[in-house]
């Protein structure tokens, strides 16, 4: 176009038009690129801010010591107590969420009529929308006092209450991902099972669930990742003292609760407290990232099959 000697008024306009089009495309692309930059930003910040921490603390101590007291006179830097708290609470949450979530998913996908589904799914979505600080209030001031009536020795801050509440919070995630997986199973497979005289429950358990297995497992993996990263419920109701224990009736801090408790105090830029939350954040990020990648990979493998 540009090589032509005589440029008609119409073509001139086209050059301007094309230039504008390019400019728009470029700015749209830059917005897309932001997503990539955020990921790089996260990795960059976590690495650079926690590097000084690992200068002062050996990786061996960080990963094997069972005491975490970076802000005390006697400093100890073992991440294990925070990890044990995180694992225990997430474990309790999964004990609640996996059965409830799976039953909900099977019911919605195989049993519920269209009308019931139209009512239930919005309820689940509303449950997802509840802010976690509200769930924290619920755990500390409603669920824990109730549990104390059954088990009087339970301390105010414990891992059981927030674990149960976190489980309720996670149910909708499991239910929606697992239901999607089960509904993606071709109808012909169900019809084959029905034709053999199987009931709906038999079909669900012996045909649909095995066929959707990787999708259901992906739902569980994503739920684990969600639980590990959950902050406010545990910061409010599980206590903020690091405690190397897997006992659900004790209080213990999680990785996320530790970060919150340090951020609430006076944070000195470049101090060991400041660096330690980035080191803790790094562990958290690596845990959730690997789970998310594993979950997405399992889910993708499933969608490729049908």
């Amino acid at each position: 176009m540009a090589q032509k000697k005589i440029i008609s008024p119409g073509l001139k306009k086209n050059i301007r038009r094309n230039f504008l089009e390019r400019l728009i495309e470029l700015s749209l692309m830059l917005s897309g690129l932001a997503a990539v930059l955020i990921t790089f930003g996260i990795v960059y910040i976590l690495v650079t801010e926690s590097l000084p921490f690992f200068d002062a603390v050996s990786l061996k101590e960080f990963l094997t010591s069972t005491v975490w007291t970076p802000l005390f006179e006697r400093k100890n830097y073992g991440i294990l107590p925070l990890v044990s708290g995180t694992i225990t609470i997430t474990g309790i949450a999964l004990l609640v969420a996996i059965p409830l979530g799976t039953i909900t998913a099977v019911y919605l996908s195989e049993f519920a009529t269209h009308k019931v589904r139209e009512i239930v799914k919005p309820i689940l979505e509303l449950l997802v929308g509840v802010p976690t600080v509200v769930f924290g209030y619920f755990a500390l001031l409603l669920v824990t006092p109730l549990l104390q009536k059954i088990y009087p020795d339970l301390p105010t801050f414990n891992m059981l209450g927030p674990g149960i509440v976190m489980g309720i919070m996670i149910v909708p995630y499991i239910a929606s991902v697992a239901e999607d997986a089960m509904r993606a199973v071709p109808m012909a497979m169900r019809e084959g099972s029905y034709a053999m005289g199987a009931t709906r429950f038999q079909t669900a358990v012996t045909v649909v669930m095995p066929a959707a297995l990787s999708g259901i497992i992906a739902a569980y993996i994503l739920a684990v990742s969600r639980g590990i990263g959950e902050t406010m419920i545990v910061a409010i109701a599980a206590g903020q003292q690091p405690n190397f224990t897997f006992n659900p009736v004790e209080s213990a801090a999680t990785i996320t609760a530790y970060i919150v408790s340090v951020a609430l105090g006076d944070l000195e830029h470049g101090g060991i407290g400041y660096q330690s939350i980035f080191a803790a954040g790094m562990v958290l990020f690596l845990m959730t990232l690997s789970l998310n990648i594993l979950g997405q990979w399992t889910r993708k493998k499933f969608t490729e099959r049908y």
């Binding site: 996260i42 990742s225 990263g229 902050t231 996320t256 970060i259 919150v260 954040g281 990020f285 979950g295």
Partner: peptide, 8 residues
């Protein structure tokens, strides 16, 4: 990014 915990 959708799966990164908010505290990160």
């Amino acid at each position: 990014l959708a799966g990164v915990p908010s505290i990160i």
